[in-house]
Design a binder for these strands. Structure first.
Lengths: 334, 334
DNA sequence: GTGAAAGCGCTAACAA
DNA sequence: TTGTTAGCGCTTTCAC
């Protein structure tokens, strides 16, 4: 590897001058600057980021922790974050926690060891206590897509109003005339979605029976299995809210496999609006989470913290929106 | 941040001894070791990886370049690579090139500046000339999922036998009695798939007419658009091979939107076997790329290079397999 | 306009 | 068993 020293020797000046020349600082004569640039070019000089980072205490690296990139909710977010990071001259370490707090903690320890400049931690990827450690150590930290009320302390965060999301889903089904409504939810991470859903039903004087609540685990397969259980009920629901699109796709598959038609025999509504949802049959009605906005606000906030911009709002909430497609319809039975 | 110095002072020894104690080297007395460990614990010492990396010239970091993580072919691979890296004590910088060689080159330059220990570059993410630079600079490099014959020089690689993949797709459709067969392909990156497809048709004395070849761009939308063009043909194909599942899903959507039934009116076969393919209606027949194996062999090869294991096979080819589901059926017209 | 010197926190080779 | 020393490649401060 070519170093500043090498160039300095070749040109016949000191490393300091070379550094100044390359940085374009004003205190170098035009003549030597040219010679330095030419030489650096010829020797294919590449600055050693490690040394620079060690010297200035800045790594131009950002950590991104999420449950698993294999869950289709995350790739778009990851891409958006990485892209923005890039524009700021940053690169991104991707860390899958696989829903394991211990693994998450290990990742965080390593990231801190690396002196990364900031970290974004997605909800569900680990315990809040594990997620708090970087913040407590003074590392710029942004929590993204967590349930507001599960966050302890004043860690900067960008969250989605999941209570409203749950309410929107319930209201849509109620508006369609459904009365036997079930939910597939991954508790406790998604408690707020359930809560909002529940409250809308309560308001309509249709309290949610306990057998109408099924536990999912954020995978398509778990959605499938949960739906199977619901559809085997003595009085089966006429509509199901799956709290993630990924589980909703499993729900639809289970319904079809059971010989039911969607939405004629069963309405299904999801939450997230992942890409594929618009392209399957029937296209999935869902409560959309503005993923791009989520990513944008999280990175903005993070870079605000890194650059120590004052007067940042440290907590932002994003509103979800209902997207009606064709997996839900008016209840026609009685 | 707590440093070795801090601990050394607190315990009353030198940094070297502290380092040795923490590393568990045999040349420290049990007594001082205990004191050091205790002190390190109390002060919450975290080794500074930057300093370590600078000193030993090893960063325990690996780069992963791909077109875009938003394409559902990649997340599983990324996760598998990251997981394995982790087990080796490594972390992974994820770099989306967005199919832009310039951006890819920029990423590579930065990665090299960071002194990463190795890099895996997926096919389609950039020009082969850009992808060659790290290898030429002596950085352990593995090309993954490229077309074998587009690779210049002897860069280590793990590739898929795409010629066979194309042939399998064609043969399956031929076996079903189809005679009007079209292909949607993203050239030139996927030339081999077309070539294999073509050769099987040639063998069956059914040369591929030029209007039966449509250009896609590896997105679902481009598959949709290409399929629309094919279905508008005077004599429309009875079967379509989309060279990625993602485009195949667009193809099915286009067919359904055009009022056709799949597979009754149109057989569709994909390539990749992404997760969702098995769960839509109809479940997609496809030529599966063993993604987990691809990731595993690529990381194994990379760590082999990093650890300078001799006698590694520097080039591996993985065979795809046909998975028959329900988006293809016997041609029943005439 | 240019240079000398110290330091970032760690490792590694050698002395004591 | 412990300590000394030099050095990784860069930045930064201050002197010339």
């Amino acid at each position: 590897m070519v170093t500043l020293q090498d160039i300095a020797q070749a040109v016949g000046v000191t490393p300091t001058t070379v550094a100044n020349a390359l940085k374009g600082r004003g205190n170098v004569s035009e003549a030597t600057r040219k010679r330095v640039l030419k030489c650096a070019e010829e020797l294919r000089y590449r600055p050693n980021m490690l040394a620079r980072s060690l010297a200035q205490g800045k790594t131009y690296t950002l950590g991104f922790l999420l449950p698993t990139i294999a869950n289709p909710f995350y790739p778009e977010i990851a891409e958006a974050i990485e892209r923005t990071a890039n524009q700021h001259g940053y690169q991104m370490l991707l860390c899958n926690t696989l829903y394991d707090s211990t693994l998450g903690q290990q990742h965080l320890d390593r990231l801190i060891s690396r002196w990364i400049d900031g970290v974004i931690i997605m909800g569900s990827s680990m315990d809040i206590s594990a997620a708090s450690t970087p913040f407590q150590q003074g590392l710029p930290t942004v929590l993204c897509d967590w349930q507001e009320d599960e966050i302890v302390g004043n860690i900067p965060q960008v969250s989605v109003d999941f209570r409203t999301a749950g309410r929107l889903a319930a209201q849509h089904l109620l508006d369609l005339g459904h009365r036997h409504i079930a939910i597939i939810v991954d508790e406790p991470h998604q408690a707020l979605r359930l809560e909002g859903f529940n409250s809308a039903l309560q308001t309509a004087r249709l309290p949610l029976a306990s057998e109408m609540i099924e536990q999912g685990h954020s995978t398509l397969e778990s959605g499938y299995a949960a739906a199977q259980r619901l559809l085997a009920l003595p009085t089966r629901p006429t509509a199901i809210f799956a709290t993630t699109d990924w589980m909703a796709l499993g729900t639809i598959e289970a319904a079809l496999d059971a010989g039911l038609q969607v939405p004629q025999d069963l309405s299904v509504i999801g939450l997230d609006d992942i890409t594929i949802s618009a392209h399957i049959r029937p296209p999935l009605t869902t409560v959309a989470v503005p993923k791009f906005q989520l990513a944008k606000e999280a990175t903005e906030l993070l870079f605000g913290l890194i650059d120590e911009k004052p007067d940042l709002p440290l907590s932002r909430v994003i509103e979800p929106t209902l997207i009606i497609r064709r997996s839900t319809m008016t209840f026609t039975g009685n």
